[in-house]
Amino acid sequence: MNENYIVNIVLPVLLTLGAPVVGGLLMGVDRKITARMQSRVGPPLIQPFYDAIKLWNKRPVIASRLQPVLAFSYLGFSLLAFGLLMFRQDLLVIVFTTALADTCLITASLNSKSPYSYLGGRRELLSVLAYEPVLIMAFLSIYMVTGSFLVDEVLAYRMPLLIQLPAVLIALVLVLIVEMKKSPFDVSASGHAHQELVRGVYTEFSGYTMAMLELGHWVKVTLVLSIVTLFWAPNLLIGAALSLAAFFIVLVVDNSYPRLTWRSMIKTTWGVGFILILANIVGLNLMGVI
């Protein structure tokens, strides 16, 4: 067994399987930090895992026969997207794969005939509409600088992306807020909106289906954070620090802004996101870098 084999196959597989664990821990950190910001003690770090295990073991109740299949597909395709990243594949294909996962989640929520879940599903769609173009634009700008969509080549790029694409990173933080369903963009399933939404897109899930959605959600958050890590590719440790910083910023924003309507959400992510990315691209062009 030579070293190449380990780096190219074994490591990515392990990392992919580890994604839910990392994601769960991040969620634990999230709850802990949020609690501290509100001067509370907060739950233990591994609280998300308790939640997931508990949900998995509840008596199975489903809303339609299709629902568990779609819920698992959401998890499976999220993992697939993450796996593609770990195997250092094409960034655009990764976005399209997450779109596939999102579609599974949305279909699962629309398909149980329930007003709250339907409402949540519609809003989830709008969230996708809000973040997807910004994410793709961010990838296109990465391409313009590095000359490739392959993560492999982005990693091999000669200098940290952050130096050339600082504004794009800020736009990615917006994407991260939407992906993590954090205020002010938590329109589809807020943890704090059960008076109006119940559980939004998650309303009709319970027990093991909900557990799979939780896992899928963790994986997706880890995915976006890993993409932020790419911004300091030469040294991934610094990159990880960068993504944790982004994570922290999201939590600060979450704790200081009220929820917006979906219209303001799209206006903000598109307006701010596009302007930042375009300014960055045009700026680089004027400086003659690309």
Binding site: P43, P44, Q47, Y50, D51, L55, V61, G191, H194, Q195, V198, R199, Y202, T203, E204, F205, S206, M210
Partner: peptide, 10 residues
């Protein structure tokens, strides 16, 4: 670990 979840199914 107590969360006010608001949804009987969960």
């Amino acid at each position: 670990g107590i969360v006010n979840i608001g949804d009987p199914k969960q």
